[in-house]
Write a protein that binds this DNA or RNA. Structure first.
Lengths: 115, 115
DNA sequence: TCCATATGTCGACGATAATCGACATATTGG
DNA sequence: CCAATATGTCGATTATCGTCGACATATGGA
């Protein structure tokens, strides 16, 4: 992931409706959520939400699949991983002693078994 | 950290010059870098860089201190930690098995001794 | 096929953001 | 105090973004 792609991804998340939608989808996992349900949940007009979702898809943060009449959006673990990875990679270039306390407080918030 | 603050921080990083400046400062650690040197390094007019730095300060991602005629900017580990923590907290609500592979690939990029 | 449901696209408006010249402020040394 | 250096502020311009009404497309069932 280069700096341009990162700016794009960060920009996609740097908007209240989109960040809210993203967080909603993160919690849903692979199951995902239909476009209309996302819009209703966040009280946002369906067409406005539609463009926001398109921006998140374009940024590689979420995916979409059709299921009957609905289009289901779900988190793109690959793209999300790349963004987090890029941000973390930069956290302590050559100075591990500085970022250790930073990470110590981040990791407990993560529920993965290996943390 | 709430969603509004997060949007602000992400927005601060969602701009090429600011992300570049932030990454520069992350690598510098507590030592930091003078405003003018940042501007020269990134080939950005000093006043343009000045407003970008102000936005990063306002977002709580960097700090400033005066040293003689220069103003030295450096990463704000506290604010940066809060942002990363917020993003990581959301990564696997109730579904650790889904985010484990996500984190597995993020953590190796981190140089902290405990990873 | 026709209608209802679900979602996406287009276009225009208002708002916000990025840029940079010109000017202002702050610090140090002579 | 004055000049040089370092940085910040203001203001105007241009570009981009968010919003939403109106219309278009896609799916499934009667």
């Amino acid at each position: 992931m280069d700096i341009t792609t990162t700016v794009k991804s960060l920009g996609a998340l740097a908007q209240e409706s989109r960040l809210a939608a993203f967080r909603l989808l993160v919690r849903r996992g692979v199951e995902g959520m239909a476009a209309g349900e996302i819009a209703r949940t966040l009280s946002i007009p369906h067409n406005t939400m539609s463009s926001h979702l398109a921006i998140l898809v374009n940024a590689g943060l979420i995916n979409s699949r059709r299921e009957s009449r609905s289009i289901i959006y779900s988190i793109d673990f690959g793209g999300t991983r790349e963004l987090l990875s890029f941000l973390m990679q930069d956290c302590c270039q050559g100075q591990p002693e500085l970022c250790a306390p930073l990470l110590d407080s981040v990791l407990p918030g993560c529920c993965a078994p290996n943390c």
